[in-house]
Amino acid sequence: MNTRIFHLDEIDQAAKEIQAGHLVAFPTETVYGLGADATNEAAVKNVYLAKGRPSDNPLIVHVASVEMVEKYAANIPDNARKLMKKFWPGSLTIILPIKRHVLSKTVTGGLSTVAFRFPDCQPTLDLIKKAGVPIVGPSANTSGKPSPTTAQHVYHDLHGKIAGIIDNGPTRVGVESTVLDMSTDQPVILRPGAVTKAQIEDVIGSIDLNHHHVGKNEIPKAPGMKYKHYAPNAQVYIVDQDTDWQRVVDWISKQPFDVGMMAEERILQHASLPMNAIQFSLGKNVQDASARLFDGLRQFDDQPNVKAIVAQAFPAKDLGRAYMNRLNKSAGGVHFGAQNK
């Protein structure tokens, strides 16, 4: 299969591919998604096949209106409507109970709930409207690898497996949406993102953060809760403190291989780096770092001489909570420390 790059004036053609049951990757403000008609079970199954994604990992359903949610949701609580009004379109995914038999178990993972998202990206909203159906959209990458933030990332992983990719340039946010479960008595964030706990609580009051570890035989209610995610081939080490960087540089200089170094510009500019330290700037703040994290991990993944990656930590609050969630998963929770000698 030839994978076509669709430009922004070719959304009509991309929508026809969706209507024909084919897969088209689409941009959002967070990461690129792998799109298929959410009402076409065969097309949705092909999403799992293209990604190599476990079939019990439910898919987020992207919509272009609240009315589209109402067609499938069994109930939309008042608080959910308040959040939709405040944050949609935007980086908030809301899990709701759905009507029986309106979407296949291939979409829901066999659950009675579905995660809905109204992305803040006009080309994708146009795609959904022109296709006339909601569109499933897990990240458009090989399952387990860093999420794609450019059309080129998608092409790298999925060319020959999907019909096309809508190219809207680099994404703005860079980490996936916040996932909020509104199907329970107490709303709970299952995955942190750019919409923060404090922002949500300003609208609907107290909510919880998920601390539940999904068991081996348990179906997760949201992506990223059960399986390995965001991992490059090289081991990632989290560097917790600014004062650790000189020790990091000393360690890099002793290694017989290249080491990727992901940090803010202020750190990279003031460090005396050895020849085998390959720099990637995370910008000037946590907003920049979140937008660039996956791009950096992917760039180092394409450099076989890079056998390790050291990456800067940020305080786990607000957007930093989402950044650290992804970085911790990329590193498998491994921090730069005593083992690095």
Rank of each mutant, 00 (worst) to 15 (best):
N325S: 09
L190V: 02
Q339A: 15
H62K: 04
V63L: 04
K307I: 07
M182R: 08
I76E: 05
S272I: 13
T3R: 03
Q241T: 14
M261A: 10
D78M: 11
P274R: 11
L49W: 02
E218G: 03
L83E: 07
Y230H: 06
A151I: 07
G224K: 10
E265T: 15
K317Y: 11
M225F: 09
T28G: 03
A36N: 04
A20V: 07
R191L: 06
H156I: 11
I5Q: 00
Q235S: 10
Q255R: 15
L268R: 05
M68A: 14
A14D: 09
R117H: 13
R100G: 10
D12I: 00
G35Q: 11
Q279S: 14
V66H: 01
S147I: 11
A43I: 04
V286R: 02
G144E: 04
G337M: 09
S290P: 05
P54Y: 03
D185C: 02
T113V: 12
E201Q: 12
S112W: 02
A43W: 03
A198R: 12
L83Y: 09
F300V: 09
L327I: 00
E265W: 05
A331E: 03
A234S: 14
D302N: 11
G110D: 06
D181W: 07
T184V: 14
D288C: 08
D242Q: 10
E70P: 07
I219V: 15
A322H: 03
K16C: 05
L49Q: 14
N210Y: 10
D185E: 15
S281T: 13
Q13C: 02
L49P: 00
T243R: 12
S65D: 14
T142C: 07
I165W: 00
R326F: 02
A131N: 01
Y230P: 06
V24M: 09
L297W: 02
D157C: 06
K226Q: 02
